[in-house]
Design a protein around this nucleic acid. Structure first.
Lengths: 207, 207, 207, 207
DNA sequence: TATGAATGAGTGTTCATTCAT
DNA sequence: TATGAATGAACACTCATTCAT
């Protein structure tokens, strides 16, 4: 079921503008103007501006969770391999939705109905995913014994860094996060960190 | 020269509200209401809303740079010691201005005149500070040979993490960033990371 | 293509209020209130208050120039007859738009973008029209040899007088400029002046 | 009794600004800024903005009436001579107060308390002055029999023209109204008109 | 499905004015 | 006499949204 051209162009325009100017700093007329549609269409398709935001964020989080599910669906036996593939998949997903990712990680820290109600629902599923994975790895002896929370805050920082510290990241990798080449480079940095802090046995899984 | 009561209460209210609702999401009437002053005072003291933002951000960045200068003023001979004291001082400064810090690190990624003109001026001074420090440390043999850019993006991530990943950080440290106890805890994590990636000789400088 | 009811009632209200209170002395809420429409419609239809002014003034000046063109379109051979018909037509046009005329002649002397840029464009066309007409009349011998500038300043004063010296004019003509009867009366005064200062041959063209 | 420096500089600034931007278009801060005084002084010296306007207009009208009284005080016996001296004196007075004159003639047509109450008081004295002068002249046989109202509207137009039709007047007289040379030139035009329409005997009174 | 017209609430800002000093 | 601080009301304008078509 393809979205109507109008609906999709609204979404695309919204993501771009939310990313550069923030949600509150973007007006529905801005979005309609960039999407080259009538502003009333936004209310028609998404009820209101808040509805458009929820649609976009939900879409992003649905995709994020789907990435986790797709890794699980491969029925890998090694926790180490699962962790590596998960991280790679998430980095790829974020890179494919880079404007949305950047917007989400920025706006998530604001006080809003969205962040108090909708977002925690998804984040608790992410937390559960990694909790199970970590426990399994530690029980099997593949992972060092680490604090879950300490690991998580570091992992999240790793995942978000390229989208929050844009001033430096481009120099580090001689490229920008939008560049597909970036994926490989930054992913290796993250894997090095996993190797060092989590994995007991050396040797990377080939990417 | 003390700020007038009115001016200061506007600043305090603005920091709180910018932090929770963002700059664009905060109206001057919101600020005036919370500060319990007339909204016209904002124009009176800061010309306009944008002027208030600039005043606040400038104040924050001035303080940030002053922290660096104060460490330099101690004329320490060891680069390692200098680096440690710098990081501790910056963490303390951020903790003392935690709402402002959080707001700044979020809003800095938006497209605005402020971020295109005023902020880079200050950030280039921070960059220069660490560039000199790193070069000195590497020449004296106290530091590993590392890429400046890679080091910086990691350092910035370390400094900003407590303010950007607030969902997890409280669990990690059994406390919140506002808690003074937090300082010691998180600072130790950062120092451990420095020890590991930058310093050639073991042994922490007593805090 | 008729203007929408809302747009036209804004224009009508604006002309009335600009005339009695001046442009700067009239607020958009005044206009909206008198027009019995929402104030936001003014921005909707005219971008802003200044745009409404420009629309109104442009409309007036367009009509003014059109009057001149319509006289020309009659292909009269006698300069004297052309001059008389022109003056009568302009007086009729002004009488039909008396509030606008009065407002325009007052506000034109203020320092504004409008008066520095838009208005001179139209006035230069009026000047050209009379320049050609006067030259033709003088070459054919129907007109006395007069200074163009002296003639113009007097003609303009004649045309504007009923709208600028309203305190006396009503007494002079035992009527007000809005009265259609006025037209004949004042027009005759102007023609008498033309007869006296410009025309070499006696005898009025029947009106 | 000299005005205080502050008060006088407020008056000067107000006249300039009222002339270029109109009364409603000028803010008390504009005036204070140009006068280089604190805005509160305006309320202190003139109660409020309206009071400043009244002060200025009253000053102008007082001077205007004083001009008439000074001609009368010369106890001239010839109505013709009186009329000529009056017109010359009024033109000189206006030229000496040209900004104020221009502002007054423009703003006088607006609907305001000032124009409904204060101004008519003075204008009725001007009317009476000319009424007596005209009657005397006509009874003595020096003046043609003319309609008072018709004469007045023409006279007023003559007096105001240089200040209302500024676009053309400069070309006519190869000078600007502010130029002292202008006085003589324009005065002669007006006297020619008087000679033609009012005076029975030829021969100008030497100026 | 899509739009132009229209609105009420809210935006940042300026206004003339007051008042303690 | 003169001022900086402060205010409430008003300013022009933008906002997200509704609705008839």
């Amino acid at each position: 079921m393809k979205e109507s051209r109008t609906k999709q162009s609204i979404i695309d325009a919204a993501i771009t503008l939310f990313n550069t100017k923030g949600y509150a700093g973007t007006s529905v007329r801005d979005i309609a103007g960039r999407a080259k549609v009538n502003a009333a269409n936004i209310s028609y398709y998404f009820t209101n501006k808040q509805g458009l935001l929820e649609y976009i964020v939900t879409q992003f989080l649905d995709g994020y969770i789907r990435v986790l599910e797709q890794v699980l669906a491969q029925h890998l036996t090694s926790p180490k391999e699962t962790m590596l593939l998960t991280v790679r998949a998430l980095l790829r997903y974020q890179s494919e939705n880079r404007y949305l990712t950047r917007f989400f990680y920025r706006e998530i820290s604001l006080d809003s109905v969205l962040n108090r109600e909708l977002v925690p629902l998804y984040l608790s599923r992410e937390r559960q995913y990694f909790q199970v994975l970590l426990r399994t790895g530690m029980e099997s002896g593949e992972f060092h014994k680490v604090s879950f929370s300490v690991f998580m805050v570091q992992l999240k920082a790793m995942l978000q860094a390229p989208y929050l510290h844009t001033q430096y990241i481009s120099e580090v990798l001689y490229t920008i996060p939008s560049d597909p080449l970036f994926l490989g480079g930054y992913a290796k940095e993250v894997e090095k960190w996993l190797e060092h802090t989590l994995f007991r046995t050396a040797g990377l899984v080939p990417s």
